Simulated scan of single mutants.
Amino acid sequence: MTHTAQPAPADQRPLRVLAAMSGGVDSAVAAARAAEAGHDVTGVHLALSANPQSFRTGARGCCTIEDSRDARRAADVIGIPFYVWDLAERFREDVVDDFVAEYRAGRTPNPCLRCNEKIKFAALLDRALALGFDAVCTGHYARVATRPDGARELHRASDLAKDQSYVLGVLDGRQLAHAMFPLGDTVTTKDEIRAEAERRGLAVARKPDSHDICFIADGDTQGFLADRLGRADGDIVDESGTRLGTHQGAYGFTIGQRKGLRIGTPAPDGKPRYVLDISPVDNTVTVGPADALDVSALTAVRPRWCGPAPTAPARYTAQMRAHGGEADVTAVPSDDGLAVRFDAPVRGIAPGQAIVLYDGSRVVGSATIAATERTPATV
């Protein structure tokens, strides 16, 4: 398979490109590279909060008034038109409300992945296509390769240290046909990206990276959820059901969590305890030893394929966290889901997380983890 230089499609014609500009250095450099490549680029900043000051400030988020001004200044330097689009209601419904509902159900969602699926490559892309644009450009570190037959594939970034293909694994073939990631083909450090931004005269060159969840203003996820779900006292128990402590809401925990358990009674072996299970029905959190977190298989639902859907069992590597490693798996697709078995146990997988399958560097697709099978010898 021959990989063409990203992002142009098979005919190599200049494109009308809508560049999503968050106000950070990556999206600014991506927009500048797209314009430099000869494309007709328009910048757009997404207003994702009805009250932008409620989102993270101090140059750490992607949705503040400060960020929109930084994006506008970058567009002016690049010399491209710039607009602000209000997608706050859609973002609240598809990302924030989904985030709260998932935690209420005892699952651990990834809001960045959901934002890519529902906002940047659905709401934004649909509007862009309706306005006559050919592609949406973002500052993600990933590659889109064009096969000889014209079909497009999503691949890991050339620089694996910055690869963001995991959070793009929800993109389907139609969305990939209109996706552009100008940063994904270059092996450069973040310092080199910042140096490039400085050479281009972009004031965001030294702006800190965004961290955590953009819509949680103070970074306190547990407090954010408590405000929306209420505080509800419940028990922390061990695997035998013995009560070890209390909590103020099971939604404040994730599978594999070690810190913040506030258990006064030490384990008999003196080793740390981890969250093994979260039961929203009776508001109970179960804790136990680390090896009880080992998972040998899982089932996943709502699969999304970055191209044709697999129809038979196959061998892949799988990634379960945005910054996690890969595991060798056998995956069996079905009409409504995916069954995955690991070659070796993997620790601390939580329902609600996404599993993304890879064939080499190619992203095959993703699905939402629904249930896990613990390694029998350790339970």
Rank of each mutant, 00 (worst) to 15 (best):
His3Tyr: 13
Gln6Lys: 12
Ser22Ala: 09
Gly24Glu: 05
Ser27Arg: 10
Ala28Lys: 04
His39Arg: 15
Val41Cys: 04
Pro52Phe: 03
Pro52Arg: 11
Thr57Gly: 13
Gly58Pro: 06
Arg60Tyr: 03
Gly61Ala: 12
Gly61Ile: 12
Asp67Ala: 14
Asp70Asn: 10
Val77Ala: 02
Val77Thr: 13
Arg90Pro: 00
Phe99Arg: 13
Thr108Ile: 10
Asn116Gly: 01
Leu125Asp: 01
Ala128Asn: 07
Ala128Met: 11
Leu129His: 00
Gly132Arg: 09
Gly139Ile: 04
His140Gln: 12
Ala142Pro: 05
Thr146Ala: 07
Arg147Glu: 13
Pro148Arg: 13
Pro148Thr: 11
Asp149Val: 14
Ala151His: 08
Glu153Met: 06
His155Asn: 06
Ala157Trp: 02
Ala157Gln: 03
Ala157Thr: 07
Asp163Glu: 13
Ser165Ala: 15
Tyr166Cys: 08
Val167Lys: 10
Gln175Lys: 01
His178Phe: 05
Phe181Ser: 05
Pro182Gln: 05
Leu183Phe: 11
Asp185His: 02
Val187Glu: 08
Glu192Ala: 02
Ala197Lys: 08
Ala197Arg: 10
Glu198His: 04
Leu202Glu: 00
Ala203Ser: 15
Pro208Ala: 12
Asp212Glu: 15
Cys214Gly: 00
Cys214Trp: 11
Ile216Cys: 07
Thr221Asn: 04
Leu229Glu: 11
Asp238Ser: 11
Glu239Thr: 12
Arg243His: 14
Gln248Phe: 08
Gly252Phe: 05
Gly264Pro: 01
Thr265Tyr: 04
Ala267Met: 14
Pro268His: 09
Pro272Glu: 00
Arg273Asn: 06
Tyr274Asn: 01
Ser279Gln: 03
Asp282Trp: 02
Asn283Thr: 03
Val287Ile: 04
Asp291Leu: 14
Asp294Leu: 12
Ser296Gln: 15
Ala300Gln: 08
Ala309Tyr: 01
Pro310Lys: 13
Tyr316Arg: 13
Met320Lys: 02
His323Ala: 12
His323Asn: 06
Asp328Asn: 10
Ala339His: 01
Ala339Arg: 12
Ala339Val: 11
Val340Leu: 14
Val340Pro: 03
Arg341Glu: 14
Pro345Gly: 10
Ala350Thr: 04
Gln353Val: 05
Ile355Leu: 15
Ser361His: 03
Gly365Arg: 07
Thr368Tyr: 12
Glu373His: 06
Glu373Phe: 10
Thr375Ile: 15
Val379Gln: 13
